[in-house]
Amino acid sequence: MASSIVRPDTEGRDKERDEDRDEHSVARRLLASAAVLAYDPATEVDWDTPLDKDFHGASPEWCSLYGTAYWDEMTDAQRKELTRQEAASVASTGIWFEMILQQMVLRDIYAKDPTDAKFQWALTEIAEECRHSIMFARGAAKLGAPAYKPPRYVLELGRAFKTIAFGEAAYAAILVAEEVLDVMQRDWMRDERVVPFVRTINNIHVVEESRHMKFARDETRRRLAGAGRVRRQIQAFVVAIASYFIVTSMVNKQVYANAGLDTERALAEARANQHHKSMMRSSCSGLMDFLASARLLTRPALMFYKRAHLI
Results as ranks from 00 to 15, higher is better:
residue 2 A to N: 14
residue 5 I to P: 06
residue 7 R to A: 12
residue 8 P to C: 06
residue 9 D to Q: 10
residue 10 T to I: 14
residue 10 T to P: 00
residue 12 G to C: 13
residue 23 E to C: 08
residue 23 E to Y: 12
residue 26 V to C: 00
residue 28 R to G: 02
residue 30 L to H: 06
residue 33 S to R: 10
residue 35 A to K: 14
residue 35 A to H: 07
residue 37 L to K: 10
residue 39 Y to L: 03
residue 41 P to D: 02
residue 41 P to I: 04
residue 41 P to Y: 04
residue 42 A to T: 09
residue 43 T to L: 01
residue 48 D to L: 05
residue 57 G to A: 08
residue 59 S to M: 06
residue 62 W to G: 01
residue 62 W to I: 01
residue 67 G to Q: 00
residue 69 A to N: 05
residue 69 A to F: 00
residue 69 A to G: 06
residue 71 W to V: 07
residue 72 D to F: 03
residue 74 M to A: 15
residue 74 M to L: 15
residue 78 Q to K: 09
residue 84 R to V: 03
residue 84 R to D: 00
residue 86 E to S: 10
residue 87 A to C: 09
residue 88 A to P: 11
residue 91 A to K: 13
residue 93 T to Q: 13
residue 94 G to E: 03
residue 98 E to V: 06
residue 105 V to G: 08
residue 109 I to C: 04
residue 110 Y to P: 04
residue 118 K to L: 05
residue 118 K to F: 04
residue 120 Q to L: 03
residue 122 A to L: 05
residue 123 L to Q: 10
residue 123 L to H: 09
residue 125 E to V: 03
residue 126 I to L: 04
residue 128 E to Y: 04
residue 129 E to Q: 13
residue 129 E to P: 13
residue 130 C to N: 12
residue 131 R to T: 07
residue 134 I to M: 14
residue 135 M to L: 13
residue 144 G to E: 04
residue 154 V to R: 08
residue 154 V to A: 07
residue 156 E to Y: 09
residue 157 L to G: 01
residue 159 R to T: 13
residue 162 K to L: 07
residue 163 T to Q: 15
residue 165 A to F: 14
residue 165 A to M: 09
residue 166 F to W: 09
residue 177 A to E: 11
residue 179 E to W: 13
residue 186 R to H: 07
residue 188 W to C: 08
residue 199 R to M: 07
residue 203 N to W: 12
residue 204 I to C: 10
residue 205 H to S: 02
residue 207 V to I: 09
residue 209 E to R: 01
residue 209 E to G: 02
residue 219 E to G: 00
residue 225 A to Q: 11
residue 228 G to R: 06
residue 229 R to Q: 06
residue 232 R to H: 05
residue 233 Q to S: 12
residue 234 I to T: 10
residue 238 V to A: 11
residue 240 A to H: 03
residue 242 A to L: 07
residue 244 Y to L: 15
residue 248 T to V: 04
residue 254 Q to N: 11
residue 254 Q to K: 11
residue 255 V to P: 01
residue 257 A to I: 05
residue 257 A to L: 12
residue 258 N to M: 02
residue 260 G to Q: 10
residue 261 L to I: 02
residue 262 D to Q: 03
residue 263 T to I: 03
residue 264 E to V: 05
residue 265 R to P: 00
residue 267 L to M: 10
residue 271 R to S: 08
residue 272 A to T: 05
residue 274 Q to S: 14
residue 275 H to V: 02
residue 277 K to A: 15
residue 283 S to N: 12
residue 286 G to V: 04
residue 287 L to H: 06
residue 295 R to Q: 10
residue 295 R to S: 12
residue 296 L to T: 04
residue 297 L to E: 09
residue 298 T to W: 00
residue 304 F to L: 15
residue 304 F to V: 03
residue 310 L to S: 08
